[in-house]
Amino acid sequence: MQKTYYDPADLKKFGDVAEFQPELAKKFFDYYGDVFKEGALTAREKSLIALAVSHAIQCPYCIDAYTSDSLEKGATEQQMMEAVHVTTAIRGGASLVHGVQMMNKVKKLSM
């Protein structure tokens, strides 16, 4: 067993998950590949969404992969940072909007 939970080298071994369950892995990676193909959204837009989600779920593998991928797709540094701010706004907002719940309760309890 390795000494740390995360090893950058493990990212390259992602496909190895097929070793324990090939059928489901195949379904997942086929689906994954299709998701990121250019569709109604461009491949670059999808990459930026993936980058934002990577920060929301704080997945180091994903941040590593989608930083490179965004650069490859021609995203600018400003676009990439704006994507991270979208994450931050939603995460922050998700906490803050619960403030309404707190206020409701306060108002119910208070005279």
């Binding site: 250019e38 461009t42 491949a43 670059r44 490179s68 650069l71 490859e72 797709k73 021609g74």
Partner: peptide, 8 residues
């Protein structure tokens, strides 16, 4: 890093 899709 590698270049992205040429057409895109």
């Amino acid at each position: 890093f590698l270049p992205g899709n040429q057409a895109e």
